[in-house]
């Protein structure tokens, strides 16, 4: 009897690859698409600006790559580049975490702000980077966004924010929660001034950022298939104890439900942004 079972459950023998053979591919040559899982040649991805050539999935873009893609050559002037969060609740290991993040990404915080031109149109621009502590919002992100809003009021330039965030930064507890109120209050003043505010929701935009400045744009754009929501998918699944339907919380889903104005492919973003800004300029009658 025992013998029969052993035979039944005996693993089929496959030819094994030697470890060296697997390791022989130079690192960073091939990148796996986060959506269709196909292997993409890294050089191709650079050309498509991190958009998967086979399925069109928009992979996260670093803030500096985004700025290069969206703004006119050498027009970007960075603001408040040294602002960094302190450790307001004395959270253990927080400083070490931010330092590691800085070493890994070269960023001092999860958002870069500045003044730039988009197809010759002046804007105040804020670009989040999800690689820095998941793009979470703490005191520094809140302050930099607020200052960008104020700069937009001062110069009377439109404000464009690219969102990418896992939400509030829990290491700053109540201070990070209050950044939602701080940024929203600043945007309230911006609104009263009659100035244009456009948000672009990129993968992923969730939590406290969704529930504050991300959803407050006069016009809300999104990149294809970006995950956008208040609660993260895992939290929802735990709450309702079921699997989420395919495409739930995707940019396309939000557009269908009426929370996103337009889905724009990465390659078209610069043109669409500059057109929208142009529409809001005071124009003399032809």
């Amino acid at each position: 009897m025992i013998n029969i079972f052993e035979q039944l459950f005996k693993k089929t023998q496959y030819a094994k690859l030697k470890k060296d053979a697997v390791m022989n591919i130079p690192e960073g040559m091939w990148i796996k698409c986060g959506s269709c899982k196909s292997n993409i040649y890294a050089n191709d991805l650079e050309e498509t600006k991190q958009v998967c050539p086979s399925c069109g999935y928009h992979m996260p873009l670093s803030a500096w790559d985004r700025i290069e893609l969206i703004t006119d050559n050498e027009s970007f002037i960075e603001l408040d580049e040294n602002i960094q969060s302190l450790n307001p609740i004395d959270f253990p290991d927080y400083e070490r975490k931010t330092k590691t993040s800085t070493l890994k990404t070269g960023l001092k915080e999860a958002v870069i702000t500045g003044i730039a031109k988009i197809n010759t149109e002046d804007v105040v621009l804020a670009v989040m980077d999800s690689r820095y502590m998941m793009g979470s919002m703490g005191s520094a992100v809140g302050e930099k966004i607020t200052r960008a809003v104020e700069k937009s009021i001062e110069l009377r330039y439109p404000l464009v924010i690219f969102c990418a965030s896992g939400g509030a930064r829990m290491q700053e507890s109540i201070f990070s929660l209050m950044q939602m109120a701080k940024t929203s209050a600043a945007l309230g003043r911006h609104k009263e001034e009659g100035l244009l505010y456009i948000t672009v929701l990129t993968h992923p935009t969730t939590g406290g950022v969704t529930a504050s400045f991300a959803m407050l744009g006069d016009i809300i754009l999104a990149e294809p298939k970006a995950l956008i929501g208040f609660a993260g998918p895992r939290v929802i699944e735990q709450t309702i104890r079921q699997r989420l339907p395919e495409g739930f919380q995707s940019a396309e889903f939000l557009k269908e439900k009426g929370f996103v104005d337009k889905i724009v492919e990465r390659k078209d973003l610069k043109t669409v942004l500059s057109k929208l800004i142009f529409f809001h300029k005071e124009r003399k009658e032809a």
Partner: peptide, 14 residues
């Protein structure tokens, strides 16, 4: 989520 939890909260804040 479908009815815009994020938007509803954000609008309250502003």
């Amino acid at each position: 989520e479908e009815r815009g939890q994020g938007e509803a909260i954000a609008t309250c804040l502003i």
